[in-house]
């Protein structure tokens, strides 16, 4: 059953078996199959090679392949675990797993830290925080004066950098999030729980029995 399709899928670069991915993530096998439907759509949007290129990621997020965005770039880089410039299916599923409502909170906190550690130094520095605030102001209609931005960044940094060494380390970040749990709200995508409903076309073509 489903042999032709399975062979075709195995030829896709970076394709991994749903059973393997389901075992390593909060997703069920059915959900991984549904994510494959989504992945096929995203990865063939511009270049039909079964890999998500940066432009395809931006196109999906903003309906515009040329619109660069600091956060989209950082998320793309974090999803692209192999750092080869594309997101493969396995990378896509494992990374989205962190955003699953059932994923461990510690994973969400760690992922958010890596997201905000723009220069990947192992710390979130004051300049990085300011850069992110300026980037979001640039993206939104919110207009804040330079003084206000400095005040917000100083205040936040002062609270989060409990050791006062000018940088936020993972432990300080964890403590800061525990005081402000809403900070990782964006690390959960409730939609992921309904992914099989979002891609019902998959259901009639499911190749893997959940009981396997």
């Amino acid at each position: 059953m489903g042999c032709v399709s399975s062979k075709r899928r195995k030829q896709e670069p970076g394709y991994e078996e749903p059973t393997v991915l389901a075992a390593e993530t909060p997703f069920t096998v059915s959900e991984v199959e549904a994510l494959h439907e989504l992945f096929k759509k995203l990865s063939n949007a511009i270049i039909a090679d079964g890999l998500i290129h940066r432009e395809e990621f931006q196109l999906a997020l903003f309906r515009n392949r040329n619109r660069r965005n600091l956060f989209a770039d950082r998320i793309f880089d974090l999803f692209d675990v192999k750092r080869n410039g594309v997101i493969e299916f396995g990378e896509f599923v494992r990374s989205l797993g962190v955003f699953h409502p059932n994923a461990p909170v510690a994973d969400k906190i760690a992922f958010a830290f890596r997201l905000y550690d723009l220069r990947q130094t192992g710390f979130i520095e004051r300049e990085e925080l300011k850069e992110m605030v300026l980037a979001l102001l640039h993206e939104s209609d919110l207009a804040l004066s330079e003084d206000v931005v400095e005040t917000i960044v100083d205040k936040t940094f002062g609270e989060a950098d409990t050791q006062g060494d000018g940088k936020i380390d993972p432990e300080e970040w964890k403590e800061f999030v525990s005081k402000h749990p809403s900070l990782i709200k964006n690390m959960t995508l409730p939609y992921l729980k309904d992914i099989t409903l979002a891609f019902p076309s998959f259901v009639v073509r499911s190749e893997v029995d959940e009981s396997d």
Binding site: L38, L42, A60, L61, F62, R63, N69, F71, A72, I75, L96, F99, A112, Y116, L129, M132, V133, A135, L136, E139, S140, L142, L144, V148, T151, I152, V153, K155, T156, F157, E159, A160, F176, H180, S182, L183, I184, K185, N186, L189, Y191, I195, A198
Partner: peptide, 25 residues
């Protein structure tokens, strides 16, 4: 009020930081 928010709160609430669009059909 943005000024009373902490910077990470502003960032995490930003619309530009959202993967929701990935799932739009």
């Amino acid at each position: 009020k943005p000024v009373s928010m902490n910077a990470f709160e502003l960032i995490s609430r930003s619309q530009s930081f959202s993967l929701d669009n990935l799932f739009e059909k």
